[in-house]
Amino acid sequence: MATVSLDRVRKLYPNGHVAVDEASFDIADGELLVLVGPSGCGKTTLLRMIAGLESISSGTVSIDTRVVNEVAPKDRDIAMVFQNYALYPHMTVAENLGFGLRLRGKARAEIDRRVSEVARLLELESRLDARPAALSGGQRQRVALGRALVREPKVFLLDEPLSNLDARLRASMRVEIARLHRQLGATMIYVTHDQVEAMTLGQRIVVLDGGHIQQIDTPMNLYQRPANLFVAGFVGSPAMNFLRGQLRRDTQWQLDMAGALLPLGELPAQASALQAWLGREVTLGVRPEHLQPVAAGNAALAATLEVIEPVGSDVFLNLRHGEHMLVARVPPGELPTRGSVLPLGFAAAHLHFFDAADGKRIA
């Protein structure tokens, strides 16, 4: 396998659009790194620059310390799995798996060995004589993965490989890819817009927006300590709740939302960092699982219940508090009625604070 390093990589198109701006990070040998962000954030462009399918305007991409900016894609020793399966319909599974090796002039015995190993790994042994039209969506995706695996490249690049599958197949293929990575110890760079995929697959995650890297961290650090409002709102489903106002302190910390005071408690862990923000605009964030119905005497705020979403193991309560839309995640059971006013509370330890002007976390 290999290491991959990006140093201030930039992509500027002739029309002046900057798709990727000053992207710098290192991928360790054997790491599974995920690039995640909304459509148009630059993640696929970044992956294509690593693959050599897109030119680099400035900066460098290195594979095992070798700068590959001017190296042809076929000479970078990478394999790419695309969003569409791109299988040859007239070829069998075995022929699809071995086609790239035949183009590279590998011996027949070597091709058969690699195809057999990969088919066993992906549980495709019984389908080697079938053509793509006879396969399920999940089997076709496994063939597309297998075509990359047989090449035994230094780096695997996966560009939204599960987006064409239904929800059940996506879940099972996520497990499949994680298992493959663990077995192979391969260096993988995985692109997705689905933050659930990113959180469940990535050892580290690069969050992008507007061509800029917003944060690089482990899944749980992204969730528990988002660097800014974008990451806080993008990572997590349902998204984090936000309340904006002036930070005040009397006998306890408070958020002044246009005259309505939201009590925040003592905030022992955050007090020293927040001292400089007294009287300034901040955005308060709280995850849906940390915003809970409480007894009226313990409530920090009251909100009107507008929509109930039962999703099995959880129930999402969609509420309105003045101008703010909020979501609370609660366990299934006896539920309040729509239109009722719920007293809500939160633990101070689970609150997040951000600069209302630039969105950065107040640490």
Rank of each mutant, 00 (worst) to 15 (best):
L255I: 08
Q246G: 12
G236F: 03
D217I: 06
V206R: 07
A258R: 10
G210L: 08
P219L: 03
M220F: 15
V196Y: 05
T283Y: 10
R204Y: 10
L278P: 02
G233Q: 04
A258T: 09
F234P: 03
V235T: 02
P238L: 09
N221E: 15
F242W: 08
G210E: 10
V206N: 05
L278D: 03
T251A: 15
L243Y: 00
N241F: 03
I205G: 07
D217T: 07
Y223Q: 08
P268Q: 11
L201Q: 02
P238S: 07
V206H: 10
R244T: 10
W253N: 02
A239V: 05
L274Y: 05
R225P: 13
P268Y: 14
M257C: 11
P219Q: 11
L278Q: 11
F230Q: 00
E197L: 04
D256T: 08
L284R: 07
G285V: 01
G210D: 09
W277M: 02
F242N: 00
D250I: 08
E289P: 06
L243D: 06
N221F: 13
Q203C: 11
D209G: 14
G245Y: 06
G236H: 14
T283M: 05
V206G: 08
G259Q: 01
P268I: 03
M199Y: 13
L208E: 06
